[in-house]
Simulated assay, not measured.
Amino acid sequence: MPFFRLLMLAFPLLELASLIVLGNRIGVGATLLWVLGSGLLGLVLIQRQGWSMLQQLQIKMAENRSPFAVLKTGMWWLLAGVLLMIPGLITDVLAVPCLVMALLNKDRPAPGEPGGPGVYKRGGNTIIEGEWQPGEAKPAEPEDRIDQR
């Protein structure tokens, strides 16, 4: 727990130090423009994707379909927007993988959706189809098997 507290104290200082270094490299005006631009970009991402996500959720729920894919993509957009709104270079760098994940998951179907992994029930168990890789022929333990009664 002390490490987490130390990290929470050090993080704003690291962000401030990164902004000071950036200000020395490209100038104060460009640094302020960077902070303002990334904050506005984060705000726009949250607003646009938030409303879009709510509309898509309403459509999925009205069609009685799984909202999992919409929520997963929306979570990445929201996290990227929040990280961009926080002033500093470290959070801006952390926002880039979130944006990549949001774009990768944008049109990926959820389990049970057409084109996604199949989902069906056998007895009292829900089975989600997955992929098998050769060389992983390790048998499942008896307590991990689905057909155990």
Rank of each mutant, 00 (worst) to 15 (best):
L14C: 07
L19I: 08
L19W: 03
L19T: 05
R25K: 11
R25E: 02
R25Q: 02
I26P: 00
I26S: 01
I26E: 00
G27Y: 01
V28T: 14
A30M: 06
A30C: 06
L32D: 12
W34Q: 11
V35S: 08
V35R: 02
L36I: 08
L36E: 03
L36P: 00
G37T: 12
G37N: 02
S38M: 15
G39V: 02
G42W: 04
L43T: 15
R48F: 11
Q49M: 12
G50S: 03
G50Q: 13
L57G: 07
L57A: 05
L57Q: 10
E63W: 01
R65D: 02
R65N: 01
S66K: 01
S66M: 05
S66C: 13
F68C: 02
K72T: 09
G74R: 06
M75N: 13
M75Q: 12
W77K: 04
L79V: 14
G81R: 00
V82Q: 09
L84S: 01
L84M: 04
M85N: 05
P87I: 04
L89K: 02
T91G: 05
D92K: 07
A95Y: 03
M101D: 07
A102P: 10
L103W: 06
N105W: 14
N105T: 14
K106M: 09
P109I: 10
A110E: 02
G115A: 12
G118T: 10
K121V: 12
R122G: 08
R122I: 10
R122V: 12
G123W: 11
N125Y: 13
E129D: 10
